[in-house]
Amino acid sequence: MTADAPVVRAVNLVKIYQTGGLPVPAVRGVDLTVEAGEFVAIMGPSGSGKSTFVHMLGGLDTRTSGEIWLDGRRADTLSESGWAVLRREKIGFVFQFFNLVANMTVADNVELPALLGGVSPRQARERREYLLGELGLADRAEASPAQLSGGEQQRVALARALANQPRLLLADEPTGNLDSRNTRDVLRLLGKVHGQGQTIVLVTHDARVASMADRVVSLLDGQIVDDGAIPKSRRRPLGAAGDVVELRS
């Protein structure tokens, strides 16, 4: 657990599903290293293995072969309870489905990971108020998850994932249920926490989200086909997006 160990290191990671018939390879030998503070977006068509890949990084799906190292520690050999501890201590996860605790208020859902992480109730409350405020949900704190729209639940799940200031934020389509205004709130918060040094690995097909990343990894058929930084655009800086938006003459 050295200070300069990468936050994520996947080595020749493979996942083969076998449900009855033929084995179906979903992830076919992926190597990925993510340094502390990096923001990596994972893109690719559906069925390219991107969700399976981040689920393995979070221990929600077991690997068939290969290694996963998180924060300098071997993780793929952990038991389910070992993963549970690791997730509680190090990982915030935003799923496509939200997994909020139904009989707890929004506020309690968000504070819970921080409290489990050992911060004081006051700190947990302040962090929760900050996160819900940033996501435009301050007035929903006392609601129960069932009273929220899909988009609201998704934002609460993001607040919960960030409550503990985890070493790693993993997210699978975190804006999949959001309209453009709510997406804007989520982008702003991701930008802020990334600016504060949050390491982020997220799967998205939303180019607005991907364009926030330092690095984009593209998967196709379970393999990485591209991995690199988003370049500076070659256009003149947009004081005006005149080249992009053309009204007909």
């Binding site: 591209d226 655009s233 256009r235 800086p237 992009v244």
Partner: peptide, 23 residues
Amino acid sequence: RMALVNRQRRHYLALMRDLRELA
């Protein structure tokens, strides 16, 4: 084609970043 697509994707994302910043 793979190289062309990859380069173009990065370029589109750079444009998206410009638009986001403009917004």
